[in-house]
Design a protein around this nucleic acid. Structure first.
Length: 806
DNA sequence: AGCACGCCGACT
DNA sequence: GTCGGCGTGCTC
């Protein structure tokens, strides 16, 4: 038998199956979707078996060296999906395969030097010999990194066969080995040895009788013998030394993920609207219909309960479901809700798990031990074989698009898989993406609307405050008088406040008032943000930090001033103006440690603070009954970013933040501060009017030729030399112009808003198109042509249907 | 991605 | 005359 194998080299010249002979004894065993180790050129690589066949047109076949998996890690469906992903996102097929699997399944490649002739090595290359561990082995990488001056000797020694170079492919998933002890000799000899022991060797005797009484094959990890049976390491060691016991590394699985079982929950009674939305979904599930539903429900309309009851149906039919949520809303409360309803039938994939735990959750799915997978973007690849439903909550979130290769959108993958399985997809959002809503309008998707909040509380009233007017009237603070008074009022009443500002740090830039110099990152074309803790200037793009200078580095004057407002400055101001208010600040800087996010939210929920001040991350999912005021400090902060989706993002964010107020018995209200209070994104969000925003924004998209009217392809070029990047971009534009139809609009090369990131200069080209059969072939040609240009050289990336243009 | 093959400049 | 730069091509 012959296997067609994709080797683990993400480069276009090898992005095709290679034929390998399957060894006789493995011929019944190897199946498509398994990982194998194959010799490739003069190296060894991991590979994926794509298919089997009887004969190869290729003459001299090499043989598969090892099969990694017992059960194929990729099902037939996922193999097809991988090829489809590679086709539609222009990435190498292996990259698509690897993206569908937990990270531990990536191979590790080792190059090991072994001493063949220790004496010769000592004699001829004494200094090199010193590096060899116990005189025998060393990893090539160690020499390359730590002792590069010895590389020449390595090559000589290799030539003279004094040392040899061996490669092996490691597997992180199997790397979890643990030292275990077992009997080294037959039982009779153990008994005899026990009798012959010195009278004082009580402990050794105990260990021996343990092994005499147990199964002779028994292997127990040393850690368990110590912890559970209270033997000591020393005692075990002595018996190993006497060769009565033997030690070896065995593979051990982690303890299965034990979750504190929350209180089980039952289906809640549904409102009329909820029933109306749920019924068609249930029908589709029952009929195995491949339909896409767009569930447009205001914040608090009870979408989650609809999801839960739909999943219940899926499980009842013996099928499985995938639920995608944005990483940020994958909070313990959210997880508990699913665990509470479906108990041990849920696997949860989130970034808080270690790689090993993710692997275990994945295996539960692959082995059919669970029925539901809940997770962020990559959970869309959950290897279920009988999918009955896919749910994408907050479908408009940009995090569903992966921002490096393979640049896939989870929504597209969901629709592909649902088509394959014959099952419905439910997209849920209070603020659907224009793309999805437009499809619903065209009846490609089925629209389900939930206009009422679950508990019939009205949406909170929203007041827009014109900051220009505040300025004119002499208020230069970051709080308008209206907002400030309302904050004071809530503090007095003992109610809680959420303040939102989409900028972290203290000041957004530092400028010298005497010469106008703005301090910039030395590696990126962007100003540095001042952080008060440690008086540091930080780059939010590459992480560069420096001490804030006392005097201007350009002219030496001492008139450095801090401009722009970040969350830290707001916090300081709150403490100064309202010393009695207890403030929790939540942004990347205060939640960096694991679990920091939840800790702060719990404190706020327990009312250990009056004000929750934060960035993006507080916009979603929070539900605190005592919150009666939400303040948006600067609604314009995202509005003027150079991205055609800036208005959409602003509308979505404002709508979400507003949804945090008055969710329970206390009525809430919202104050939005803005310098452009008449902007439709702000006005429509204030009126909770999605339909109106949609119409206004669609007109603009139509006029400017943006999605959903046109498709986009974005080509990014970076190089350490600006001219080289520009040159490549120039050539790419002319290739596009020569190959595409007249109806395709080709833009560029342009320098993006941030012209340089991490010392690499950036250029972009863009294509807007409606139907362009020639596009993919040209893009493939381009990526082939501009690929192998070295490490420090040109880097090219192609993003189809990008979600961020910057 | 590696690695060999191959064709032109600065050294023993 | 050699050592070594990186352009081109191949890996079942």
């Amino acid at each position: 038998m012959i296997a067609e194998v994709y080797v683990d080299i993400p480069a276009s010249p090898v992005d095709k199956p290679f034929d390998y002979q399957i060894p006789e004894k493995l011929s019944d065993f190897v199946r498509p979707g398994m990982r194998v180790i194959v010799p490739f050129g003069r190296t060894k690589r991991l590979g994926f078996v794509a298919s089997l066949k009887e004969e190869s047109s290729f003459g001299k076949l090499k043989t598969i060296e090892r099969v990694v998996d017992n059960l194929p890690v990729l099902t037939g469906e996922l193999l097809d999906l991988g090829r489809w992903l590679a086709d539609t996102t222009l990435c190498p097929t292996v990259s698509a395969f690897l993206a569908m699997l937990p990270a531990v399944m990536k191979a590790e490649y080792h190059k090991i030097l072994t001493a063949e002739n220790t004496e010769q090595l000592q004699l001829r290359f004494p200094r090199l010999a010193q590096l060899f561990l116990s005189g025998k082995m060393i990893e090539w990488d160690v020499i390359e990194k730590k002792h590069p001056e010895r590389l020449k000797e390595v090559n000589e020694a290799l030539d003279e066969n004094i040392i040899s170079l061996n490669r092996f492919v490691g597997n992180q998933a199997n790397a979890r080995k643990v030292l275990a002890v077992s009997a080294a000799v037959p039982r009779e000899r153990l008994i005899k040895a026990a009798e012959g022991l010195d009278a004082r060797s009580i402990r050794q005797k105990e260990v021996l009788s343990f092994f005499i009484e147990s199964d002779q094959q028994l292997q127990l990890p040393v850690s368990e013998l110590i912890k559970k049976y209270h033997f000591s390491r020393e005692t075990l060691g002595r018996l190993v030394k006497k060769s009565l016991l033997k030690q070896e590394f065995i593979e051990q699985f982690r303890d299965p993920y034990v979750h504190r079982p929350g209180p089980p929950t039952r289906p809640l009674p549904l409102t009329g609207e909820q029933k109306q939305a749920l019924t068609p979904i249930l029908n589709s599930i029952e009929k195995s219909e491949n339909r896409v539903f767009l569930c447009h429900g205001v914040t608090g309309s009870g979408k989650t309960e609809i999801y839960l009851q739909a999943i219940q149906k899926v499980i009842a039919l013996g099928k499985q479901a995938i639920v995608l949520v944005p990483e940020i809303s994958l909070t313990p409360q959210m997880v508990d809700r699913f665990k509470g309803r479906f108990g041990a039938e849920v696997a949860v994939m989130h970034s808080g798990l270690s790689r090993g735990e993710k692997y275990d959750e994945w295996r539960k799915i692959r082995e059919g031990l669970v029925k539901v997978a809940v997770g962020a973007r990559s959970a869309i690849f959950a290897p279920f074989e009988r999918l009955g439903l896919i749910i994408i909550d907050e479908e408009h979130e940009t995090s569903y698009k992966q921002d490096d290769s393979p640049r896939y959108h989870a929504r597209d993958v969901a629709i592909y898989r649902a088509h394959r399985h014959g099952c419905p997809v439910v997209l849920g959002s209070a603020t659907p993406s224009l793309e999805s809503y437009a499809r619903a309008q065209k009846k490609v998707y089925t629209l389900l609307s939930l206009k009422d909040r679950f508990n019939h509380h009205p949406m909170p009233p929203v007041e827009i405050v014109d900051l220009r007017e505040e300025m004119r009237e002499g208020n230069h603070s970051m709080f308008s008088r209206v907002l400030f008074n309302k904050i004071r009022d809530r503090l007095k009443k003992g109610e809680q406040i959420v303040l939102f500002l989409n900028r972290r740090g203290y000041s957004t830039f530092v400028m010298c008032r005497s010469c106008g110099t703005v301090i910039k990152c030395p590696h990126c074309d962007i100003s540095l943000t001042y952080h008060h803790a440690g008086r540091l200037l930080k780059c939010h793009y590459c992480g560069y930090e420096e001490r804030a200078p006392e005097t201007c580095p350009a002219c030496g004057s001492d008139s450095m001033r801090y401009f722009g407002t970040g969350t830290q400055k707001v916090e300081t101001e709150l403490n100064r103006l309202l010393p009695e208010a207890r403030v929790i600040r939540m942004d990347v800087d205060t939640t960096r440690q694991k679990g920091g996010h939840e800790k702060l939210l719990r404190q706020f929920g327990e009312q250990k603070a009056d004000i929750l001040l934060g960035t993006q991350m507080i916009a979603k999912g929070l539900d605190f009954p005592k919150v009666t005021l939400v303040g948006v400090l600067a609604a314009d902060s995202m509005l003027h970013l150079p991205d055609f989706r800036a208005s959409e993002k602003t509308f979505q964010l404002l709508t979400q933040v507003s949804g945090r107020a008055g969710r329970h018995d206390l009525p809430g209200e919202v104050v939005i501060q803005s310098y452009t209070p008449d902007h439709y994104a702000i006005v429509d969000a204030a009126h909770h009017d999605y339909a109106r925003f949609y119409h206004e924004e669609m007109q603009i998209r139509h006029r400017l030729g943006y999605p959903p009217f046109y498709f986009l392809a974005l080509i990014n070029l970076t190089h350490s030399e600006p001219a080289r990047a520009a040159d490549a971009a120039e050539r790419i534009v002319s290739m596009l112009k020569n190959n595409l139809s007249r109806s395709a609009r080709i833009y560029g090369p342009v320098v993006p808003a941030i012209a340089r990131i991490k010392d690499r200069y950036r250029y972009q080209c863009m294509v807007k198109y409606k139907r362009e059969p020639a596009l993919f072939p040209v893009l493939r040609k381009i990526s082939l042509h501009f690929q192998n240009t070295g490490k420090d050289g040109l880097q090219l990336s192609i993003d189809l249907n990008p979600v961020v243009l910057m």
